[in-house]
Write a protein that binds this DNA or RNA. Structure first.
Lengths: 221, 221
DNA sequence: GTCTATTGCAACTCGGAGTTGCAATCAGGC
DNA sequence: GCCTGATTGCAACTCCGAGTTGCAATAGAC
């Protein structure tokens, strides 16, 4: 999305063109986060952005198209994965990033879109860009490095760990609506890290497919 | 799930009175789960239930009131907590119950209401009955027994463990929309159980059932 | 059978989403 | 400065679904 030069943006205080688009995105995401999916209608967004609804309709035919654009434009490139040399500090950095995201209007909006709807193109677009291999590559790399350092069990189920961290934050913030502080993140990281730490299998290499009830020594898939 | 008593109502084929109410609840929750919160309008519910919309309006003034009643009526008394004598099998039973709930129309509907909206009386009612002390007493008891048996660290954060299990399922089912099978539940339970297992202290003997060896990553704390 | 509460029905009102034609205005080129 | 094309504002629409009302029909209890 090409932007105009700063000088031009200052001269006309954003009454036309790209600045208008950005203001609309901001308003739409704010509305989504604050009042939910159903509150994001084109007339409402236009009013809050100080625009005539016709102008907004000319750019986006439906509120779904607007939201899709707003989400896509706001979801920047995935951050560089942390590499502190230790699993726990890496995980903590990842968790802090996830927490910041989840608490932002953008994160709240994404959650709402993901969970409020049945199936829709909007939903598929969001899921696609949020759970794409590119988006999860960073965390996966962090875990892979930890396996190589011997901090995680080689048979660890990477996707399980990612779901645990992301899901726990989702639950705390958006379902239970409790405050999440650094201590909570540390406890979560500690639980995951020690729960997926390497097993000692002194004599018995654990069978791959056991049909019995799980025992404490079983490898995590 | 305790339902209303309809001992004498069976004579009528359900065109009036309480059976109508139940059919409306069922339709409303089905719509909520299938197509999302915005799809639950009184005219739509009435049409699907084979009723005139006027009849539905007479019982519930708004779709919010209808949903609140439907959710409250469907959320039965909390199930008895499992007590198998071992943490992992208890947790597995809890997780299976949570999975069944999350995949039911009721569970899907609850998630939608919780996450789709900003603040509303409907939301507060659902949160109130779902996260009340009474509703979480069972799982808490399970974990408390495990602590007493020496399977969990005495300093364990019970609410963290509950958030982890619930949140991970929420993430898998409703965000990632992936299938959750028994193996996944076992892996999740194993992760949580071994992650919160007691730390080795010189003065405290190792628990009888926990066979996890100390890992190099364990913090001294 | 009678009586009453419940339901069905049709014809509303009301408000918000979305459309259209045209005037006003801005940005940028000359 | 002025001209031109693109963008925005504006007002008067249409359309549809939510919600209302008065009354007729009927199921169900007695």
């Amino acid at each position: 999305m090409p932007r105009r030069t700063e000088s031009l943006r200052r001269k006309s205080i954003g009454r036309r063109g790209a600045p208008v688009v950005e203001r609309v995105y901001e308003v739409a995401l704010g509305l989504l986060a604050e009042r939910g999916l159903e509150a994001v209608s084109i007339p409402e967004v236009a009013a809050r952005a100080g625009l005539n609804k016709t102008s907004v309709y000319r750019r986006w035919p439906t509120h779904e198209a607007l939201l899709e654009d707003a989400l896509q434009a706001s979801l920047g490139a995935p951050a560089e994965p942390p590499d502190t040399g230790a699993l726990r500090t890496d995980l903590l950095a990842l968790a802090r990033g996830a927490l910041a995201f989840a608490q932002s209007p953008l994160g709240k909006g994404v959650v709402r879109v993901l969970l409020a709807q049945g199936d829709s193109p909007l939903l598929r677009a969001v899921v696609g860009s949020l759970l794409s291999p590119a988006a999860t590559a960073g965390p996966r790399q962090v875990l892979a490095r930890a396996v190589q350092r011997g901090e995680l069990d080689p048979g660890v189920d990477v996707s399980l760990l990612l779901s645990v961290v992301a899901g726990t934050l989702l639950q705390r913030i958006h379902v239970e609506r409790r405050r999440v502080d650094g201590r909570f993140l540390e406890a979560l990281v500690e639980l995951v890290a020690s729960g997926a730490a390497p097993r000692r299998h002194p004599s018995r290499p654990a069978p791959k497919r056991a049909r019995r009830a799980p025992s404490p020594g079983d490898p995590v898939e």
